[in-house]
Amino acid sequence: MSNLTVLGAFHEAPAQPLSAIEMEVVPIDLVTEWRRCGMIADFMADYMVYGFERRETARSVLSTVMNELVENAAKFSADARTPARASIRNHGEVVLLEIRNEASDKHVASLKELLPVLAHDDATAVFRQRLQDRRGLGLALLARDYRATVGATVEPADAGGKATVCLRVAMSAAEVEQR
């Protein structure tokens, strides 16, 4: 029986992707050289653009979104030496971007607060409120600017461990290409 907790608008993946890339990253590498976050996002976006007609636009959008997720893992992993997994999956009409990592309790609590609100409220209002409250903007920005749905699953920790969070951003292919 699964003990997964689903937060917000977690888009279930269709069967098999048309194209996909998955990479393992160690958060300590990202923290010690921050530009690696962007390097990974750019590489994954470059790899995936061949599935899109408007490649320059798709590269920019995919890299922007992936960078936010990789930066998220760099900032909020419970243990900077436990690898995180980043992936982009192109399912045709929908593209799923994901980061899976062991998250700090504080980050899990923050996602439990934000994601249900993002799933139900106007993303612009959420973005504005977080700007005023001086809280992180990344996920609200993705929801607002890229009409993305943002959700997560939280897998409870083993004894002594930390919860594993799978944070997933779903975007339409039309949004990736800005059609």
Binding site: T124, R128, R144, Q178
Partner: peptide, 16 residues
């Protein structure tokens, strides 16, 4: 206008 995030930013800034 050729840079997607800049178009998005313009829209966000107009709202805020």
């Amino acid at each position: 206008a050729a840079v997607p995030w800049q178009k998005k930013l313009a829209s966000s800034l107009t709202a805020l």
